[in-house]
Structure formats: C-alpha cells, structure tokens
Simulated assay, not measured.
Amino acid sequence: MRSIVLTKGVPDFSEGAVSFDEDGHLERGKTPTVMNPNDAFALEAALQTRVRHGGHVSGMSMGPPGYAEVLEGAMESVYTDDSYLLSDRELAASDTWATAITVSSGIEKYREEVADVDLVFAGFKTADGETGQTGPQTCWALEWPIVTHVIALDIDPDERRLRAKRLVEGDVDEIETVETPLPCMVVTDPEFEPTYRKASHRLTHKELRAETQERAADHDEHLTTWDHADLNLDPDYIGLDGSPTIVSSVDPIPKAPSEREATMIDPDDGTAMEPVLEELQPFAGGD
C-alpha cells in the first residue's frame, strides 16, 4: 500500500502562545506554527494501514518553507517515509479551492514521477479555517471516491477495496459501514483510534519507530520541494488570484480582560455564602 497524508501548519492556539495586535487580529509571524491537530488522526490511519499491509507513507503539505518542520514532525511522530512540500510565493493566500487545485496537482506529479498511490488521507478540518472543504475538493479534482468521518478502516489488498466505518451525526449518532475501490481518499474523524491487536502488528510498529528515529534526524535528505512551475500551474488559477472566495469582513477576536473583579467572602460567614451556593447549585451533582 502506498499512501499520501495531507497535513498543514496552523497557528498554535494553546493558551499563551497566540499573539494578537492591538486590534485583536492574529499575528501569524509572532505565533508559533504547529501541525493541525486533526491531521494527527489522518497520520495514524495511514500508519495503521502500513503496519497491517506494508508499503510506504509520504507526508505532503502546501505552505511556506517553515512547513517543512510540520512534515518533520509527522516523520518523527507517525513514521512517514518521506516528505513533499508544495511551496512558493505564487501559492500564497490560496483559499480552499486554489489549495485543492495545487495539492491535487502535487499528488498527480507524485503518481507520475515517484509511484502510483492507493490512498490519500486527510484530516477533518483545520484549526484556523475550519471549513472542512480542502480534502473533498482535492478528491473532486482527482476524480476519486471519498469516505469521510472515518473512525475505523481496513483494506482488502487482493480485492483492492477499502472497508470503513464512518460516523454519521444527527439527532442520534450512527455508525455506517461502507466499501469503496482503491484508489480513494479517506477523511478521518476525530473519533478515529488505531488498533493493533496482533503481536506481529505491534512488533512492526516498534520496528518502524526505531527506523524513523534515524531518518527524522536528517529530514532534509528526505524532503522534496515543488513550486508552481514544477507542478505546471498557471499563476492565474492559484494563490490569491485563483481564489474565488470573497471575504466581506473580518471580526477581530475579542480580548479577555486583563483584570477580573473579585469579591472576597469569608467562608465562615453563612449569610455571605448564601449567594455563592445559589450560584453553584445548578452545576453540582447528586442531591
């Protein structure tokens, strides 16, 4: 099985890491970049497939040169074999559509020059855009079948079919089992959990971890960078010029107050404690 996992760098939204200007706008240059959290589930699905069926897993990302660190993180944590970065100034400010055109072109170039691909894995959505559109749009450009919200999967290599369980959310959450031929795209759900029940699978997982420690230490030797010319892309159809999305307005993120008012209450003062108990009672469990 040969797989490509799509991943992206996003601002680190953890407490204390995000930097905003005085108007409440995100300052990307002053905010650390980390791997999109939902992409971790896609990487785990690709690793599970490799452990069970062998093969090769490549990481692919579109973004500035700094995204090479995101791909290096994928190699360190989920044992990708190599990395592909789609990067140059012509690709900057792409919306989901322009991104999908670029990424699908990167996948096609990979298939033509490196090896054919059985599976492409993508995360549910990114932490900065949260549209959930790029994976399905990329699949549309490839003209492949797609299975979304995947929480479990396995492959029948002889029949070249994927069998997956996907989460269907509604009034009552349901689990749907589907099958599709390869090649196809898999969009993992945050509920996805890899399983390694056989001793042979756990041993393979351990061996891959040992191999990756050596490989990730020299990530640049396993990184290939392609620009828009390498992908034979017209600048009019990528980047900002090729993005049909129109942003009508941007609301700044409200700042939290630097100071909070506090009322000091003596716990031995029964009268003063009464309003506190009334406030907390709806959140208390039991009787």
Rank of each mutant, 00 (worst) to 15 (best):
M1H: 04
M1Q: 01
R2A: 01
S3Q: 11
I4C: 02
L6W: 02
T7S: 10
K8T: 15
F13H: 09
S14I: 12
S14T: 07
S19L: 14
E22N: 06
D23S: 12
G24Q: 08
H25A: 13
H25C: 14
G29T: 07
G29Y: 06
K30T: 12
T33H: 14
V34N: 02
P37E: 03
N38Q: 08
A40S: 11
F41E: 12
F41A: 09
A42Q: 04
A42L: 10
L43A: 14
L43M: 14
E44C: 07
Q48E: 09
G54Y: 01
S58F: 10
M60V: 05
M60I: 05
M62I: 00
P64K: 07
P64T: 13
P65D: 08
G66C: 11
Y67D: 10
E69F: 05
E72P: 12
M75V: 04
V78Y: 15
T80P: 02
D81H: 04
S83W: 04
S83Y: 03
Y84V: 07
L86V: 04
S87M: 14
R89Q: 08
T96M: 12
S105R: 02
S105L: 05
E108W: 10
Y110S: 00
Y110E: 02
E112S: 11
D116E: 07
V120C: 03
G123Y: 04
F124Q: 09
A127Q: 11
G129P: 05
E130Q: 11
T131W: 04
T134D: 00
G135T: 04
Q137D: 10
W140A: 12
W140M: 07
A141R: 11
E143M: 15
W144V: 11
P145V: 02
T148M: 07
H149D: 15
V150C: 01
I151Q: 02
A152M: 13
L153Y: 07
I155T: 09
P157W: 01
R163A: 10
A164M: 03
K165I: 14
K165L: 15
V168A: 11
E169Q: 12
D173L: 10
V178E: 09
E179F: 11
C184W: 10
D189R: 10
E191W: 13
P194V: 09
T195S: 11
Y196H: 05
H201A: 15
L203E: 13
T204V: 15
K206M: 07
L208A: 02
R209D: 08
T212C: 07
E214Y: 12
A217G: 04
H222W: 13
L223V: 01
D227H: 02
A229W: 12
D230F: 00
D230T: 06
L231E: 01
P235M: 07
P235E: 14
L240E: 13
G242L: 00
S243V: 03
T245D: 01
T245C: 01
I246V: 13
V247Q: 05
S248A: 15
P252H: 13
P252D: 00
I253A: 10
E261K: 00
M273T: 02
L277Q: 06
L280G: 03
P282H: 00
G285N: 04
G285H: 09
G286L: 07
G286A: 09
D287N: 08
D287T: 07
